[in-house]
Amino acid sequence: MTTDPLLKVTNLTKTYTGSPSMVARLLGRKPVHVRAVSDVSFSVGRGEILGLIGESGCGKSTLGRAILRLHEPSSGRVEFGDADVTALSPPEMKAMRRRMQIIFQDPYASLNPRRTVGDIVGLPLQLHGLENGREDMREKVAMMLDKVGLKAGQIDRYPHQFSGGQRQRIGIARALISNPEFIVCDEPVSALDVSIQAQIIQLLLELKREFQLTYLFISHDISVIGYLSDRVAVMYLGEIVEMGPVESVLATPRHPYTQSLMSAVPEVDGTGKGQRVRLKGDLPSPLDPPSGCKFHTRCPLAIDICRQRKPVTETVGKGHSAACHRLAERLSLLEGAAQ
C-alpha cells in the first residue's frame, strides 16, 4: 500500500523555544529549547490508516499538528500529493487546508459554544466558497449531519445541547464537509465512554470507505490502534522507535518500548500468559532528554552503548523497522522475562 504515498514526512522536527523572563535573561539564563518532535520520517499511503501510538507527552499530537502546520514545523518537509506543504504560501496553504483536516480529542473544547451546529459545520463551506448562498449551505450541512448519524433537524442547536458522542459527530462532520483526502484523528475517541467509542470508530471506518479517506490515527490505546490501523508507528520522546504493519508490530514487537506497551494491555482471558514488562520511572523531561538512545533510562535491556550512541533504524521484517542497539543479539524481552 505504500506504493502510492499520499503523505510523506521527512525529518520533521518541532522545537519549542521558551524565552526566559527579562530578569532571567539579564542573569544570563539562556532560552530553553524543547524538541517535541525530533527528526521524524514516515509516509502514509492513499487509503491507509496509520496508527500513531505513544504515552502522553511523547509528541504525537504535536506531530499531527505540525503536519497540518497548525504548529509551524521547525525543520523537515511534509509532502502531500505532489505539493510541499511546508513551502506553501499562506493563500496556497488555505486552499490546501480543504484537503487535509483534523478531528480533535475533546468534543467539548473543539466546538465554539456560541455558534450553532449549522454555522460550525458550514464554516468550511463558507471559507472555501463551496456554497451558493445560505439555503444551499444549510442543505449541504443537513446532508452531512445525516451522514454522521445526526438529525438534519438539529442544525440550529448549540453544542451544549448534545452529548459527548454527538458532539464528536459534529466535529467529524465539520472535518469532512469540505471533502478532504486526509484526516488527522487526534485521539478522537479518548474522551468518550467505551460504548460510544465503538460507535465513533465504526463511523470513522464507514466514512473512510465512503469518502476514500486516509487517516493518521493518533491514540494511546493499543486496542483501538490494533483494531483499525493498517500500519502502526510507535513514538517515544518525540521519535518513532518502531514502525510496521499492524499484525507484525503488535504480534512480534521488536523494540523494548513497544514490548512494554504490549504487555501493559490488560487481558480478560485469564490465562495469565502475558508477562508484564514494567518500566522504571516516568517519561524523562523533554527539556533535558537522555543521551544516546532516549529510552535507555527506562529500558530493562540497556547497556553502555545505549547511553552513548543513538541507535539507527533497522529493517526487522517486511515493512517493519525499529531503532534499538540490541535488536540483533537479544531474545524477545517477553520470553526472556518468562524464564
Binding site: 486552499a95 487546508r97 480543504r98 480533535f104 473544547a109 465554539n112 468550511p124 471559507l127 465539520r174
Partner: peptide, 12 residues
C-alpha cells in the same frame, strides 16, 4: 482552545 485551532485548521 481547540475550537480556535479547528477554525485555523479549516483555513479561517
Amino acid at each position: 482552545l481547540e475550537y480556535v485551532e479547528a477554525a485555523r485548521a479549516l483555513g479561517a
